[in-house]
Design a protein around this nucleic acid. Structure first.
Lengths: 336, 336
DNA sequence: TTGTACGCGTTATCAC
DNA sequence: GTGATAACGCGTACAA
């Protein structure tokens, strides 16, 4: 059995409340009694029961981080930064993985509703479902969305400027002489992916190019999906000379398919991938990629959540950060 | 505010205990009262407060999964299998990341000691520290180790047969005609890595080859470490003709260094890497790798933990599973 | 500065 | 079958 407050109180010959105060560094405890209490606590390796503590204080100092994709190195990177931020303020992170399944999200939301965590950060994922909405209505839950768009705009959100990112990518390809740029984006029912597509369309329109519907392909965010996307697209009437991929894993699959087909990058097809992660840095040739400001995404979202928890945020906020285009071999100029 | 048991009791005009019984499917509740209670609960979106529940029942239905390396796709894969297993028995997983820092492990152990979780699975990591030991003494904590060796043998453990795995790898290289095989292993203060080295030594000795100390290199388990390992090793007197790498990320770094040096695989150096993950499958050339039985590791360890929690395991168990050698281009025969 | 008493939301043990 | 009531371990007014 674990030792409890009561035990310490008995040993020290004081009241439980005094022990509680001493252990929590609250003022109003005599120096000597405090020292004695701390000593006893240490000697017996006392660990406060966090369940009881949370129950009494209505605060657990734990937050949930809900990942839509645990395979994506970018997401893992964000988690690491979150952990660092949490550590500084003595918060625990509990990591949850949904694998893009909406029902799973519901499960993890109940962590909030059942008071196991003080707040939650949702990273990625599709359109915000009705259950998330209801959660925000039923009680003033502390929720921050990262890289996830909801048309309702009920949640504090930290975003990457996807539209602008893909816009830059497309512009770059155009400047390098590519004219028939294909877009391999994520699932259609994802507003973030819609944003990306918008950036693509805008760049093409500005250049006076006709949009070929055949060259816009939306699919899952998996490696296989990227692979199959290439196979589908080169079957179409218009053969592209370049690809922009909007997800980390699809990028990998896409490049693999291109190489498997005996084509060369960028000679046959230029490629701009997504995410400046280990995956895109391993693959050959060196890939031009769109890179998200992962550290900032993490820091800002954590700060927002902290403020939400402490009722320190007057209104829902949306912060948009800029991605950057990292130019490498795979998008080199077509004719030189 | 959330609705509580008491609220439901009031609305239904019954006692709290009755509500508790009804909601927990315990016998001894009238059909009609039960129906009424369930209806009210559903209508008001009642969520039991897990803190209170855990406090009263001394059981949280949560387990901690402590990862030593979150960058390793193999570990992530194990986590996914664990999640699946946990879901089946209505357990929640809380993921913790230590980044190979022992102090962090201590932090997460306190999740156990403070009754926030019913048990913990430690995946990977170095030598078991004294804090882990103390945990096993102070109270009968439910702990399972995965891919982690402790000389004390206090914990139920699920292991891969590392020694045999590396033995197979080395034998394979020898058969293919390689004679000067270098080993790039993980940190020295890690018994698992020691096991791997043993397998290597055994294979070489059986073949009557003299061991060259220069060719045994132990380092961090990072990509950079693998990269630098190659640079160091080719500076030595004996230039190897093959490499065995015992960690996922070092494998990547190693291969990158070889290619960066202008060498070819396997013409200049054969390579056997570690882990059949996305990383080793992306990199070129196709890599011969040692693959761990990830799903089995997860399933067995979870079952063990469940039994530990339910006091269903009479003694500490150690289960050793077999890795498999997946042969691809990077270890092709030297002369043909 | 210290102690008393109550509450947090459940579960479990008695009675009835 | 149902209802009080006492835990569970801690925080916190309030009183002393």
């Amino acid at each position: 059995m674990q030792i409890t407050l009561k035990d310490i109180a008995r040993m020290a010959g004081v009241a439980e409340s005094t022990v509680s105060r001493a252990l929590n560094d609250k003022k109003g405890v005599g120096k000597e009694t405090k020292l004695k209490i701390l000593k006893i606590a240490k000697e017996h390796n006392y660990r406060p029961n966090q369940l009881a503590r949370g129950l009494a204080a209505k605060k657990t100092n734990m937050i949930a981080v809900v990942l839509s994709e645990m395979d994506s190195p970018g997401n893992i990177e964000i988690v690491k930064y979150l952990e660092k931020a949490a550590e500084n303020v003595n918060y625990q992170i509990i990591l949850c993985n949904t694998n893009n399944q909406q029902e799973k999200e519901k499960t993890y939301l109940s962590l909030l509703e059942s008071n196991q965590v003080d707040g939650a950060i949702f990273i990625g994922g599709k359109l915000v479902g009705s259950h998330l909405l209801r959660a925000s209505f039923s009680n003033e839950n502390s929720i921050v969305l990262v890289n996830r768009l909801a048309e309702e705009n009920f949640f504090t959100t930290v975003l990457t400027d996807y539209s602008n990112g893909i816009y830059q990518a497309a512009k770059h390809l155009l400047k390098e002489g590519y004219q028939k740029i294909a877009l391999v984006s994520g699932p259609k029912d994802n507003l973030v992916e819609e944003e990306k597509t918008n950036g693509y369309l805008q760049a093409l329109e500005e250049s006076g190019l006709k949009i070929k519907e055949d060259l816009i392909y939306s699919t899952d965010s998996s490696r296989e999906a990227g692979y199959n996307a290439f196979l589908k697209i080169i079957e179409s009437e218009v053969i592209p000379d370049a690809f922009i991929s909007t997800k980390e894993l699809t990028t990998i699959g896409l490049v693999e398919a291109i190489k498997m087909g005996g084509y060369f990058i960028p000679d046959d097809f230029a490629v701009i991938g997504y995410g400046d992660s280990i995956l895109t840095s391993i693959i050959e040739p060196p890939l031009t990629v769109l890179s998200e400001p992962l550290e900032e995404l993490a820091k800002k979202s954590f700060n927002f959540l902290l403020k939400l928890i402490n009722d320190d945020l007057d209104s829902k906020k949306i912060e948009v950060l800029n991605p950057s285009l990292i130019i490498r071999d795979s998008s080199l100029a077509k004719y030189n």
